[in-house]
Design a protein around this nucleic acid. Structure first.
Lengths: 195, 195
DNA sequence: CACTTTCTTGACCGGTCGTTCAGGAACTGG
DNA sequence: CCAGTTCCTGAACGACCGGTCAAGAAAGTG
C-alpha cells in the first residue's frame, strides 16, 4: 500500500457540482475549481480526469443527491396526486434557500449544452427521462386511485409536468420571487387537480 | 464626411445574435464572433464596444426581432384564447426549423447568467416581464370575451404561461422531438381552454 | 529502519482569451 | 487633387485557459 488520498472524493465533488451549478460549464475554470474544491490541480486531474469528466461526475452526483431526493417524493407510497403536489412545493421551497445555487443543474446544462455537445445532451436527456418516468408512475397511480381521470393521456401529462419543472427552474433562476413561483405552481397543479 | 462603414450593423449583429443563441455567452469567443460576423476585431470593438456590450445588443435585437414577433401574435386582434394557442403552436413550429438555433436566447441567458450577472439578469427580467404582460393582456381579453372564466386569477395564469414557454424552450433544446413538444403544448393549453 | 508506492505540490506548457492600437486604405468635401 | 476623417487590417498585449509533469512528502510493508 501507499499514501492514502487526503481528501474525500464526494466532498470535493460536491463543491465542484455547486460551482458548475451556479456558474455553468464554460464559465467555470480549473483555477476556480481547485480554489473552491480545496485541492490542487494535479489532484483534480488525478482523481477525475479532465474538466469534462469532472463535469460529468458532478452531474452524476447531482443526479444521485438532488434529483433522486426529489424523485423519491414522487415515488413515495400514498396518493400519486399528493406526491406531485409535494414535488412542486419542494421545488419552490428549495428555490428560497439561501446559499443554494439558483435554478437546477440539469435545466441549466440543458440550456447551455443541449444542442452543442452530443454526450452531455444524452446525459441530460437521460435525467429528463427519469423525471418524466417518475411523473408517469405518479400519474398512473393517481389514475388508478381515481384522483385523475383515467381517460387522460398519462404520458402527455408526465411530459407536461417535466416541462413545467424546467420552466419553474428557469423562472427561479431569473426571478426567485416567491409569489411568482407560487402562482406558477398553483396553476400547474390545477392541470392534474381538477375539482 | 469620411469613409463609410463597409458592413450593415444589423446584418452582422444578427449573426452575432445567432452565435450567442446557439453557444451561450461564455462559450462564444471574439475569434468565433469575428469569423461568423465577417468583420475584423477592430471593427467589432469600434461598432459595439466590448463583448458584453455586443451581447446586450444581441439580446436587444433578439427582443426586437424574435420576441416581438411572437408577442405580436398575442396582441393580434381577435380571440385572446386563440392568440395564446397560436403563440405555443408557433413556438413548436419554430423549434422544428432546420438551421435555427435550438431553444430561446432569453431562456438560455436566464439559465446561464440569471444569478451571476446583475445587469444581464435585469435585462432578461425585463423581457420576461414583457412576455408576462402580453400573456396577461391576452388572458384578460379572453376573460372579457367569456372564453376564460373571469373568476380566475389572470396574473397567475400569465405567470404560468410565461413559465410554460420557458419550460418548452428548455425541452426544445434538450430533445426537440415533435411529439413530446405537442404533448406539452396540448396539456398546457388545457389550462386556459377548459371545455 | 529502508523501500516502495501513491499523493501532493507548484512550476510550466502551448494555446487562446478579450482587448488595444499603429498604420495603411477608402471615402467625402472643398 | 488635396485635406480631413473614418474605417479596416493585422500584429501585439498581458492574462488566463486546460492540461502536464518532475520532484518532494507521506503513508504502508518488510
Amino acid at each position: 500500500m501507499a499514501r492514502p488520498r487526503e481528501f474525500e472524493r464526494d466532498v470535493v465533488l460536491d463543491r465542484a457540482m455547486k460551482l458548475f451549478w451556479s456558474r455553468g460549464y464554460a464559465a467555470t475554470s480549473i483555477r476556480h475549481l481547485v480554489e473552491r474544491m480545496g485541492i490542487q490541480r494535479g489532484s483534480l486531474y488525478g482523481a477525475f480526469g479532465d474538466k469534462r469528466a469532472l463535469f460529468f461526475a458532478a452531474i452524476e452526483r447531482y443526479d444521485r443527491v438532488m434529483t433522486s431526493r426529489l424523485l423519491a417524493t414522487l415515488d413515495a407510497p400514498g396518493s400519486g396526486l399528493e406526491a406531485i403536489r409535494r414535488f412542486f412545493r419542494l421545488k419552490v421551497e428549495a428555490a428560497q434557500e439561501r446559499g443554494r445555487p439558483r435554478g437546477c443543474l440539469v435545466t441549466n446544462s440543458a440550456a447551455e449544452l443541449g444542442s452543442r455537445d452530443r454526450a452531455t445532451a444524452s446525459r441530460i436527456g437521460a435525467t429528463l427521462g427519469r423525471i418524466e418516468a417518475a411523473f408517469h408512475r405518479a400519474v398512473v397511480r393517481a389514475q388508478q386511485a381515481g384522483e385523475i381521470d383515467p381517460a387522460r393521456d398519462a404520458r402527455a401529462l408526465a411530459r407536461f409536468l417535466t416541462s413545467s419543472a424546467q420552466g419553474l427552474s428557469v423562472m427561479a433562476k431569473a426571478s426567485p420571487d416567491r409569489a411568482t413561483l407560487d402562482d406558477i405552481v398553483r396553476i400547474t397543479l390545477e392541470v392534474v387537480d381538477r375539482r
